[in-house]
Design a protein around this nucleic acid. Sequence first.
DNA 1: CGCATTTGACCTGCGC
DNA 2: GCGCAGGTCAAATGCG
Length: 498
Amino acid sequence: MEENKSFESNGDEESCGEEIVLQVGAGKRAREDDEMKAPSPNLKNFMNCTNQGVVTTNIERSSPESESRSSSSAKREQLDNQIGSSKAEMEEVMEENQRLKMYLDRILKDYRTLQMQYRDVIQQEAKKSPITHDHQTEEEPDEIFALSLGRNSSDRLIKDENRVIKTPGRNDESGNIVEVGDDKEGLKLGLDCKFQVPKKLSIDSSPNHSPENSLEEAKEETWPPKTTKNVREGGEDEITQQNPSKRARVSVRVRCDTPTMNDGCQWRKYGQKIAKGNPCPRAYYRCTVAPSCPVRKQVQRCAEDMSILITTYEGTHNHPLPISATAMASTTSAAASMLLSGSSTSGTGPSPSSAATAATPSNLNGLNFYLSDNSRSKPFYLPNSSISSTPSFPTITLDLTSSSSSSSSSSSSSSSMSSHLSRLGTNFPPRYSTTNLNFSSLESNPPDFLDQQWDLTYGTQPFNKNNNQTTTNSLSFGTTQPYETLYQSYLQKVLFKT
DNA sequence: CGCATTTGACCTGCGC
DNA sequence: GCGCAGGTCAAATGCG
């Protein structure tokens, strides 16, 4: 399993030995421009440290010919050729910069709008339904709550269940995972939520939730399945009695060729089962960081795409997490917070009716809440290929897979940014990566979703184009963090803003 | 030898 | 009530 199976047949990974040069720029080496223009000191240092292979390649490519010829005309000709090719590459880089700029602008704009609208929704719901919903939810029919994240939300809103079910993808009979992304750029950043409120929903009352922990507390309260005796686990049977049916699950889909996804925690396998509809066995793991930790996870490969690993987490760690595990934990927490914010009865969170009363899909600028009525359609179960198909578990799915044949979106990605994001979710095991980005839209600070996990080198580098002079901030960053961790951080920062 | 994994048995809930 | 499926247990097994 050490072998690096590349799911994308590009040459980047193969050409990189110890270091992975993640080139955002249609495969062009923006740093070749530095031969003509002095880079910023930071960038230069960064390049020397991390991209020696590329720089060396450039030197080697030009040196033999220049040594073989002694005449000045030949040198001049060679220089002209170099300049010409560099100009051409510069133009391509500029175009890529523009795409990146647009992409970043859109993300930032979406994020701001989403943040504002989310606040509004919270405030409105707090005014509307200040009381708990114990009785309300018990009497409501099963609600199915679909949540998806994407950029082109308004035009891709799914209007009815038929459309949902028709959504092609990695699902089998139910086919209900909705992926919303940008077709043009092939970026599939799907946040899929399958949620069905059980008929007999017992309500927990955990009023003292901090925003960060509210979900995990909820998950912990509800973890032990009612089917479990839990004789040995002491206080957990109280939990079982508290709220046996409302359990938040966070399912993460990643492309991974290793048996399990490295999420930073220690797990002990306690069972394996062949689930119906999926020839791949489902493995059950228990957190072993602390003896009494109630967190468990299920790992299963997607039946339709064996390269996709589906990991479903349940419960809350009752112990400090390793640093490497905090990203996943916080991300799943945030994801499940979103999930439970529509169903939780916690006094601080949005009311369950906030989702239930939304007769039509609400569009929060890329955050689509879709509510379907179970009485009119088949249940919104997880596909068989997914783990935790038990419908009584509210489950949110973080789709960290790249565009694939299972996606309804066009996978013909031409955007290097999308490929960059795709690769964040597709490269395992973690390796050192370096990336150069140019953001002409940036002012003085790197994007706020790039945090301490990135080894940042940031500087301003002027770009000259023949007819269009632009000043571009060059942002170089490398990291030893796993790609999935980075992407989780990205999700956390940009989408969930935890 | 200790720990992790495997695997068949068992339990529980749910649908018919 | 019965069968099925999901989930868990625990003895057996493997491995360092």
